[in-house]
Design a protein around this nucleic acid. Structure first.
Lengths: 229, 229
DNA sequence: CTGATAAACGAATGTCGTTCGTTTTAGGGT
DNA sequence: ACCCTAAAACGAACGACATTCGTTTATCAG
């Protein structure tokens, strides 16, 4: 099979420099997900210029790719405003009312960043919701920043965690909602037997998901903020 | 190919009475999902005593089975309390404060039923979130009952629909949360570098998801109820 | 009585995630 | 400087799985 010595093209055996890393896999998966809404191990390998089986030298499974990406994305969620706000609360002596407003604004900013980040794919949402934080350092770090900011505002650590969990449910649901078609509530031919739905749908604009998100977020934060001192 | 006439055991050709229906398939899928958390077309066929290919005479695809089940489950969500409450509001002349409390209680009851129903499987959650209601008569009917009750309380149809959408995001997220392990927030070895998470987790009980759900639900409903007259 | 259609079956297909055996090279220990 | 282990690539193969196809048999409309 060998024949004469020729310029070895591109096959077989360990390469001089490693071609891929777990991180490159994560990033490639992110691109595929944002472009196609899904990915296969073959597509991943192709994008990286590698055989599918080679991926398994760096990750254990497709699920692990998903978990890694989930963690990467959680890490990228902006907690800036929350940290700044926490610093202000620790430093100055704000009135309860002002502090509450500050908490609502800063938390809303974090929440919007969270929803946008995870609206990449529904599969990602499920993964995040179910993966223990001890296997996801980026996620854990993000949570630590958020809960410690909440504690600065006067929550106990326990309440901070429960508050985050409640917010998270809303945010993950909202992130999933983003993938629904705009006319998901259109009753179609059944309009006449569902008059309230028909009328309500007719009066929705072109960004019902965004509007419902802002509505729910404001309500949720207002309600949660009453537990602050 | 025939050989002698014998007692035909159980093979080939149209049966005297149809063995399965779309409904039977839906119910079998529900059982598998609640028992195993998942199902395959083969498992479905086996449970129904039928060949996998026979399923396709009644449903177009696995996704359609999921959509049908989602609709079946949505249909089963209890709207009793909401309808009774709406009737009371229409009949008597309650004060705004009492009406608001009534709305909160009735809506909370519906919300709990909703969350419980869809905690059957995360895949079901995604399906519901993304399937247009015009293909899901049971879901549409449930929404009509809820929105028309909301309208009785003084919401405009548009606000009723946006309110339902906001609630739904929270409920679907909460339903997904149910599948998370209890110790999902345990920082493990990383506890020392994440003190707030560590302390918060240590003080959680054995039903953090339920507690976070009730916390978020109360906050959300309190916030949303301020939009009532 | 006779098509046409519904409903079952088994066999086959294509995709996908994953495993295995092989090959080549990098890098640490003597 | 030389091994020898382990890392990292490859292609081939496997087992699931959803789905399609051709065939067979029974029902039902005309």
């Amino acid at each position: 099979m060998t024949g004469t010595r020729m310029t070895r093209n591109r096959t077989a055996g360990r390469p001089t420099a490693s071609l891929i890393t777990a991180q490159k896999i994560t990033l490639a998966a992110q691109e595929l997900l944002s472009k196609n809404g899904d990915f296969t191990m073959s597509q991943l390998a192709k994008k990286l210029g590698v055989a599918p089986s080679s991926l398994y030298n760096h990750v254990a499974s497709r699920d692990e790719v998903l978990a890694g990406l989930s963690d990467h994305i959680a890490q990228g969620i902006s907690t800036h405003e929350l940290q700044e706000a926490a610093a202000r609360v620790r430093a100055s002596d704000l009135t309860a009312r002002v502090a509450r407003n500050l908490w609502v604004e800063a938390t809303a900013s974090w929440a919007r960043s969270y929803r946008t980040a995870f609206s990449l794919s529904p599969a990602l949402v499920t993964t995040l919701a179910v993966t223990p934080v001890r296997n996801a350092p980026g996620t854990l770090g993000m949570y630590e920043q958020v809960t410690s900011a909440f504690v600065a505002f006067g929550f106990t650590p326990r309440d901070a965690l429960l508050t985050v969990e409640a917010l998270e449910a809303f945010l993950l649901g909202s992130a999933t909602d983003v993938h629904a078609p705009i006319d998901i509530f259109d009753p179609g031919q059944r309009a006449s037997s569902h008059p309230t739905m028909a009328e309500g749908f007719a009066e929705l604009g072109n960004t019902p998901q965004d509007e419902a998100f802002e509505l729910g977020l404001a309500a949720l934060l207002a309600g949660l903020s009453t537990r602050l001192p």
